[in-house]
Design a protein around this nucleic acid. Structure first.
Lengths: 358, 358
DNA sequence: TTGTAAGCGTTATCAC
DNA sequence: GTGATAACGCTTACAA
């Protein structure tokens, strides 16, 4: 590992002082034009890039954002990382990521390590409602924003979807189609977002008569979900529709139904959660609640940016609307050209064709 | 943002010198037992964690690993990140990630930024064979390891699968089943790993008589792949089997076939690439070449660790074996209990049931 | 064994 | 407008 060039090297080569180099490259002070040119030339020639650690140490401006997620193997979480990375990068911040690996203890330990970088801000998808990172974050005073999972009673900025409405949106679709026996596959009721989705479904079903809701807690992984659903199906449950509240449980339900040759949607309809390419490609394609991932990232950044800039206002909980993407798993085989329909929370209906560029 | 505690604070509280605090917490020198206890107590009380930037600046040990991937929206890449993150974390390193967002220019720019952290090592999944990060990495002298995509002619450590053998494995399965008209859906032939997979398929097909191979270049995204495959199907191609060489193209092929009510595997068989939960759950479940993601991460770390420790030996290209997971998309509906079969490169056959915990 | 002091590379301050 | 100098928080010679 070659020693990297320093300000001194550049200064010497350009025949100026280190301070001037810093001023030119940092663009903080006015400098003589041809001096600046010499500095730039020298910097380029030496491949100079300021050492971020030293720069931070002196300036106190870390330009690091740290992010912790329950797992890096869940595409929902990584899609949020992708969005945050784009925003942070666009603003000159680098992103340090840590996975809690589904463990409260790991989350706690990892956040400790992240904070030792003195990040300017932190984005957290808490591993559980215990929110193990909380104490360290609060103690450090580092601005942070929660994503996806808000913590009940916690005063902190959070960006989530409107889980209750998302649940209603799913239930409403099924009720409209005449379903009265609905089973909900929840990952775990230990998470408030999942509970709220359930509440939304329950609330809509309660508006009709004779609607019955069964609840199945299937765990956080595809494997546990598959096993639980398999056991449940062995009991020949009376159900005409399933709402799955996470991407893994959606997949597990679909797999179990297909494997048992239960016809979808003829025997059982399915509304899934999250919107992935495989849901379009599956046979049958899956009706699903789509979360606005890109917007979640944008709003996370917006909140974090505000806090990093010193906003000391009341904590804000942003709850974004979801869309219902109607596909074969609830309505069979619709119009072959416009075969995907989107129903927004406001009830509007619009067609979306499957052609590229969407 | 509260000012974080420093060594001085801890030293004062414990009634010792800063050097002693550093020695106790860093565990580098022997210290008196009750002094050590006092230091630990003070550190805990103040919530002290050494500032990593300052620590690095003085010691020259950055304990940062940087990683760049073409996209954070591709679960294959993020699964490798997940594995590397576990290994780096276990060894006390933090991980900075950057996405090239499928752009050579972005890769180059992002790697420049990453290097300004003076990372101890870098893991790169190059965005293209141009490997835009190369110059900066070589110039910096930072140890790096390529993942997934080796660059032809490049002298650098790389951990990939044995792409040629993977191609042969897929083709062999289809030939065994009697297929003679095989279409390959490649993302892009601009990547050597994809070309090698093609070559492997071609090589196996060439061993039989009358085998025909058609090649379809479908692009890197699900959308472009879907569109291309759709156009191709409109031409009523003479093909009894498709090999898809990436996860997105696998999905796109499956979707297009299902949508057109082409029966799989009765009309067309499908061998996909990568192994995801959705492939088990899809109807039909998808026969696929599984890449050993966890091992890729392990070997990446092993190589990087060696280089960071000063190993100056010849560049090593590790090529890992893949498995063929046989499912419905090539063989219909096998034994309902052990419904997934794995065929390794060595030809061994073993059953794997779909019960949880696998 | 413990403390003192220097210095990592940068930028902010303050003379010039 | 430019340059010398100090200081950020830490680790590590080296002195005690």
């Amino acid at each position: 590992m070659r020693r990297a060039a320093t300000v001194k090297d550049v200064a010497e080569k350009a025949g100026v002082s280190p301070a001037t180099v810093s001023n030119v490259l940092g663009g903080r002070k006015k400098v003589n034009a041809d001096m600046a040119a010499r500095v730039h030339a020298a910097a380029t020639e030496l491949g100079y890039e300021a050492d971020r650690a030293a720069s931070f140490l002196r300036s106190g401006q870390s330009r690091i954002v740290a992010m912790t997620v329950p797992s890096l193997d869940n595409p929902f979480f990584t899609s949020i990382i992708a969005s945050v990375e784009r925003w942070s990068n666009a603003n000159g911040f680098d992103l340090i990521v840590a996975s809690a690996n589904e463990s409260d203890a790991v989350e706690k330990a990892r956040v400790g390590a992240l904070l030792s970088w003195r990040p300017a801000g932190v984005v957290v998808i808490p591993n559980s409602e215990r929110f193990p990172a909380r104490d360290a974050l609060d103690f450090s005073g580092t601005p942070y924003v929660l994503a996806d999972r808000a913590i009940p009673g916690l005063s902190a900025d959070a960006v989530t979807i409107d889980n209750f409405s998302a649940g209603r949106l799913a239930a409403n679709h099924l009720v409209d189609l005449g379903h009265r026996d609905v089973t909900v596959c929840a990952s775990t009721l230990d998470l408030s977002n999942i509970r709220e989705r359930c509440d939304g479904i329950r609330s809509r079903l309660a508006e009709g008569e004779n609607a019955r809701l069964s609840l199945l807690e299937v765990g956080l992984t595809f494997e546990s979900a598959s096993a639980t659903i398999e056991r449940w199906l062995q009991g020949s449950p009376r159900t005409t529709a399933v709402v799955a509240l996470t991407n893994f449980s959606t997949l597990a339900v679909l797999g179990a139904l297909v494997q048992r040759h239960i016809r979808v949607p003829d025997d059982v309809s399915l509304v899934g959660f999250d919107d992935y390419a495989w849901m379009r490609a599956a046979g049958p394609s899956v009706t699903a609640i789509r979360q606005p991932v890109e917007e979640i990232g944008r709003r996370l950044w917006e909140r974090l940016q505000a806090r990093m800039d010193g906003d000391a206002g009341e904590p804000v909980h942003i709850q974004l609307d979801t869309d219902l993407i109607v596909r074969d798993s609830t309505v069979g085989h619709p119009d072959p050209v416009h075969d995907t329909y989107i129903r927004s929370a406001d009830g509007a209906f619009r067609a979306e064709s499957r052609t590229p560029g969407q």
